[in-house]
Write a protein that binds this DNA or RNA. Structure first.
Lengths: 259, 259
DNA sequence: TCGAATTTGTGCGTATGTATG
DNA sequence: GCATACATACGCACAAATTCG
């Protein structure tokens, strides 16, 4: 039996300002999210309006606004001073370029003094269907799996899982651990150049692993890319899934004019 | 020991396996999100595991799992049958291609039977710094602003705000409203072709406008693109900010490198 | 130096929502 | 469905720090 599933019009709005109750998301968290996007992300003001004013504006109790502010202070986005006010801690977002020649460190050059990736773990495992298809292997084939963390100026920005064909790259983990650079490691293994063939971008809530490795707070948002790198002849080299902290990074896709 | 009953809770860690408590996001909603991503989005199974098994896996009470399932049934992602089980209502995620020739309807061809965009509102307003820079106008210059909604098979998937230079496109809203297609409208106004010069991708929580127009639930995630379209000579035509429902759409960036 | 106004910090009682068994 | 415990949200009151005339 098909139920009334109206998709187009929103299910009757709350008469109260804007926030939705009884949705499983606490008001203080909804307010924290709105303060982030309305005052912190796009903002001109260095100071947040007083708590009483925010409470009126959002139609909630001052305690509730305070809970939201406390959460944002906890993640370092705001700073409060008794008697003076609540101030915005400004931290620019990195623009990570997605191009046919995407490279971590080179891509963030000029945006952070120090950029590096670090290998956390590596194993040999059976390829999932997704990985096998990307690397043109048969499902269940053995693949090298690498977990790494990308940081800019000491702040973690990305968390990647990547896979390589061991037939060609069995020594990759060892070389990568030594050089600390995917590009150098691949060069040493005979791949002088590689190109980004395709990138899929999605977004979701941070899972517990993201929260731990990227030092996020629960409820945070991550950008997820699934990328295939090939050699100049088009043979697959590496497939990777990378999670970026969405409040620290945005992705930039440029097309050289003329196409 | 006095119990901690303060309203200001946030910075607290998880003790239980995976789900985070005290985060302002109810367990049943976190579980609903995980069922969506683990069983509904990427899945092979048509049937959800039994409630008791899910309860064990997530380390929560069966009541809590039932609340999550009830929410997903409410949004049409699951269907329960007494005595038989809980079944997944399959609706794949759309892959929205970002290319030098990005077009809404053509891009989703083959993925949805019916694709269309609809203009919600249009006004003349003063350009913000961001819009002015993109369209190569001076800040504060008058610009045409258009709000539109993109839908596939009746389900809203994107919500766009776009700006045009009124010197060249004063009649755009009228023509667009009539044709229902940006490409046709531009063609009628003398722009036979246009190219995507750059795209910036970010992700954030849905704001109340997103929740209303895209029929999302609070706490949902949206993908945001900021795009500049130019004519083949490189002169700016349109600047737009588009919000995609992240659980219905992913972005695909292809580079035809080898071909 | 003083006080008044403004703003953040704290406490308590109560009602409702969420999660467990 | 019931009983219990904790989390969330509200309302009210007052304390502490800062600003300003």
């Amino acid at each position: 039996m098909e139920r009334d599933r109206r998709v187009t019009p929103p299910p009757a709005k709350a008469e109260r300002a804007d926030l939705e109750r009884r949705t499983g998301v606490a008001l203080w968290r909804q307010i924290a999210d709105r303060i982030r996007s309305e005052f912190i992300s796009g903002a001109d003001e260095a100071r947040l309006p007083p708590e009483t004013e925010l409470a009126t504006r959002f139609g909630v109790n001052r305690h509730t606004v305070r809970a939201a502010i406390a959460a944002l202070v906890g993640e370092g986005a705001l700073r409060t001073e008794q008697g003076r006010g609540t101030f915005i801690v400004r931290r620019g977002r990195l623009a990570y370029p997605i191009t046919p020649r995407t490279r971590f460190s080179a891509g963030l050059e000029g945006q952070a003094r120090e950029r590096r990736t670090r290998m956390l773990r590596h194993t040999l495992e059976a390829a999932t269907e997704e990985v096998a298809r990307a690397l043109a292997l048969s499902p269940g084939a053995s693949v090298v799996r690498i977990e790494s963390l990308g940081a800019a100026d000491g702040l973690p920005v990305s968390r990647a899982t990547s896979w390589y064909d061991p037939q060609r790259f069995a020594r990759f983990p060892e070389v990568y651990a030594r050089t600390g650079s995917v590009t150098s490691a691949l060069a040493e293994l005979g791949v002088s150049d590689y190109l980004r063939a395709s990138t899929l971008v999605e977004a979701r809530h941070a899972d517990p692993g993201d929260i731990a490795d990227l030092a996020l707070s629960p409820g945070a948002v991550v950008l997820v890319t699934r990328a295939l790198n090939t050699d100049p002849e088009g043979a697959p080299i590496q497939y990777s899934i990378t999670r970026f902290a969405a409040d620290r990074v945005e992705l930039r896709i440029d097309y050289p004019s003329g196409s």
